[in-house]
Each structure stands twice: as structure tokens, then as C-alpha cells.
């Protein structure tokens, strides 16, 4: 069972990094993008892992993403990635656990994107030492609504298609 977990997390971690890298290539083609904002496609992977493995797996993916940011983009980017990632992961997991009755992946995706941005904004406020940056949040918020909807709808479409995979993972887990 443990081997399966390692393999699954490794695969999902790689997938998160690749989608993160691919979205960097996409950024110039997206109009009206606030500076520094990203579509957050790798959030699809984090949310999928959160829904299959729960909190520990999702945190693992978040840490991998932060580590990758540290290696490729430096300490500031890593800290921002970590703060946004952790906050959004915590909220996503809470919603997945207690809010599934009221929220589909659309709402969860939006909430996750909003929390990711707020976490990053808080991190940048801490680093720069002044809270005035909070006002940039309005641009990020409006954008999080859009990107969160995109990632949420992507999940709604993807999850049924990878159902076999999910079932396969869960089956071997429950047998122990």
C-alpha cells in the first residue's frame, strides 16, 4: 500500500510541476492578466490529490511546488508559493470534507484560487513590511474568480474521466 502511495504522489507531483511550467508559457497569451498572477492550473492536481488522498497528500504536492519554486525562482517566490499553497490546501480540504453537500468542484476551485491569492498577498505584505499592498487584492480577487472557475470546471470534467484510476488507487488502499 505504501509503494502505491509513493508512486501516486510522485506522479501527481510531477504532473503539478509540469502544469505549473506549462502555464508559465501560456501567460503571454492571456489578456488582462494582472502582473504576477497565474492561471493556477497546477491547482487542478492539488485539488484532485486532496479529493483522493486527503490533506497529507495535498500538502505534499504543495511542498513539492514550493521546493520547485525555490530552485527555479528563488526564496521570495518559494515563500509566496508556500503561503498561498498551504492556505488554499487547508481550505480546499475543509470544503471537501464538510462542504461537499453544498459545493461542487466549481465552488471549491474558486475558493481555492481566492485563498491562494490571499495567502500570497499576505506573504508579500509580510515580506515588504507594509499592508498597503492589500489593495492590489481587488485585481487578484476578480482574477481568482475566473481562474478558479476554469480550474473547477476542469476538475468537473477530469474527475469522471480518471475515475478508474481513482478507484484503482482506493481499492488497494482499503485492502491494506
Amino acid at each position: 500500500m505504501k509503494t502505491k502511495k509513493v508512486a501516486f504522489l510522485g506522479m501527481m507531483g510531477a504532473l503539478a510541476l509540469v502544469t505549473g511550467f506549462l502555464e508559465n508559457l501560456l501567460i503571454p497569451d492571456i489578456p488582462f492578466l494582472p502582473v504576477g498572477a497565474k492561471p493556477g492550473l497546477s491547482n487542478v492536481v492539488t485539488m484532485y490529490v486532496a479529493s483522493v488522498m486527503g490533506f497529507p497528500g495535498a500538502v505534499y504536492i504543495t511542498l513539492i511546488k514550493a521546493l520547485f519554486a525555490l530552485i527555479t525562482r528563488g526564496a521570495t517566490a518559494a515563500f509566496m508559493s508556500l503561503c498561498g499553497g498551504l492556505l488554499s490546501t487547508v481550505v480546499t480540504c475543509i470544503l471537501l470534507k464538510f462542504g461537499k453537500k453544498y459545493f461542487s468542484f466549481w465552488g471549491i476551485g474558486v475558493m481555492s484560487a481566492v485563498m491562494h491569492n490571499m495567502g500570497q498577498l499576505a506573504a508579500s505584505s509580510v515580506i515588504s513590511g507594509t499592508p498597503v499592498l492589500i489593495n492590489y487584492g481587488k485585481y487578484l480577487l476578480i482574477f481568482a474568480l475566473i481562474t478558479g472557475s476554469v480550474t473547477g470546471v476542469m476538475l468537473l470534467m477530469i474527475v469522471p474521466r480518471v475515475e478508474k484510476f481513482t478507484v484503482y488507487y482506493n481499492k488497494n488502499n482499503s485492502r491494506k
Partner: peptide, 8 residues
């Protein structure tokens, strides 16, 4: 679901 619409 309803929560989605409410949240948005």
C-alpha cells in the same frame, strides 16, 4: 450546487 452560486 447552491453553495457554488452563493459563493460566486
Amino acid at each position: 450546487k447552491k453553495g457554488d452560486l452563493f459563493l460566486v
